[in-house]
Design a protein around this nucleic acid. Structure first.
Lengths: 236, 236
DNA sequence: TGATGTTTTGTACGATAGTACAAATCCCAT
DNA sequence: ATGGGATTTGTACTATCGTACAAAACATCA
């Protein structure tokens, strides 16, 4: 009954619905789910609280729609980049390409929606931290496939590393990624202004290089920890 | 029946106060600050809602007290371990010791309080994600000194890496650390049961090794990205 | 024991939460 | 222009929030 594409393809007035989604996304990503009221969202969107109920029925429904809106495009983008990365010949280069395929869509727009994917990724980080039920369900059934695909791709590039280690390290990657989006100011602060934590390009490059190196670390499955070989040459 | 621990001194009945603190810590760390009501805390502690007000005045005051309770011991522990790590002769070993000195107290008890430091660290992760004001203030003025000390120590072991890169990578470390405590189940799930994300010893070992490798990655300050040399031998 | 200060209990209050719903408004095909 | 569905508005209801506060219960010491 909501469907009414009679003449002009889409809804004639997508403004309000979109504005509410954008406002909610921003507020949730910044303050968490529970700290933001429906009235806050409506006010930020220049809408009436009743409009939120009308379009999304409940507050949970609003969050759900935000996820639905982003998950598809973002995972699609990742799939494309991953497929391209898999075709890289050199194993070393391929590893970096795979990691980049995972990281880049999280920072840049996973879709054509304004604001880019960084906001949505920050939202995911916050929902994850809050243990939000709605988010947890969607995440597990939407992102686990993608995660497995990436883990497999990384494992291909590093066959001698146990899959378990790769899982841990890719988990660290996601944590680092989330945290970089949650508190970018901390980077600026600790670097005494020499780095800008909010600069996506820097964050991506730093994250990719650090992560590639972490994946390349020797496995630690063995009971007796093998003597690690020097990874950085002393040529300075 | 009960020995007398003291005559006057401090609280004669620390039970309730402690129970409230412990319950709040657990609930906040699991569900976030705003999702937990004072009544939830009181019920979990077997106390009356009024007791919370009596002991901590406000909900913010309760959170503040949780931080006060842990920050001191945890930073002390880190200082001790860092001082010991600094005395390690071999640069390679020292780097690992420094990273370990940062990671270990976050997982194991930062004090003698029941439950260990992991719960408090998880709490910090969640508060950070929610942008909690009370937490933000304490964090900046309590942990930044420690963070700088660790960054300096790492920089000592890796003089050829720009400080900016070290800041980024230690930021990633903290993010990975937080995320490991927030959603350990994801590790278990993605590894298909082969790894236990909740096992602190595994998490520490994996995190330390991955992080050490990431710190050792070549710097990327240069405009023209230098061709990275193979880090993993091709003997496999 | 009885007085005294501390802690716990019970309850109440104002504010705000999510949501429901009727009335008002808007847009487009007729 | 106009009728009718889609949207927006305004408002109200109930639940729960954080907090305050008086009374009850308790522990300690003269």
């Amino acid at each position: 009954m909501v469907r009414k594409p009679t003449s002009k393809e889409t809804a004639r007035k997508p403004n309000m619905r979109e504005a509410i989604l954008a406002a909610a996304e921003e507020l949730f990503a910044t303050n968490g789910f529970n700290a933001v009221s429906v009235r806050d969202i409506a006010q930020a969107a220049g809408a009436n609280p009743g409009s939120v109920t009308y379009h999304f029925k409940t507050k949970d429904g609003l969050l759900l729609e935000i996820y639905r809106r982003h998950c598809g495009p973002m995972n699609l983008r990742r799939s494309e980049l991953l497929a391209a990365a898999r075709r890289v010949r050199d194993l070393q280069d391929r590893l970096e390409a795979v990691v980049r395929a995972y990281v880049v869509p999280a920072f840049t727009s996973g879709s054509d929606l304004a604001g880019g994917g960084a906001r949505f990724t920050r939202l995911r980080a916050v929902m994850s931290a809050e243990g939000n039920e709605v988010a947890r369900k969607i995440i597990a059934q939407t992102f686990d496939d993608t995660s497995h695909a990436f883990i497999d791709a990384i494992h291909e590039s590093l066959p001698h590393i146990p899959r378990t280690d790769i899982v841990w390290r890719s988990h660290f990657l996601l944590g680092a990624l989330y945290y970089s989006l949650v508190t970018p100011d901390r980077v600026s602060r600790l670097s005494r202004g020499e780095a800008d934590g909010g600069d996506a390009a820097s964050a991506i490059e730093q994250l990719v290089q650090a992560t590639v190196a972490s994946f390349q670390a020797p496995p630690l499955d063995h009971a007796a920890p093998a003597r690690r070989r020097p990874v950085v040459s002393s040529k300075a």
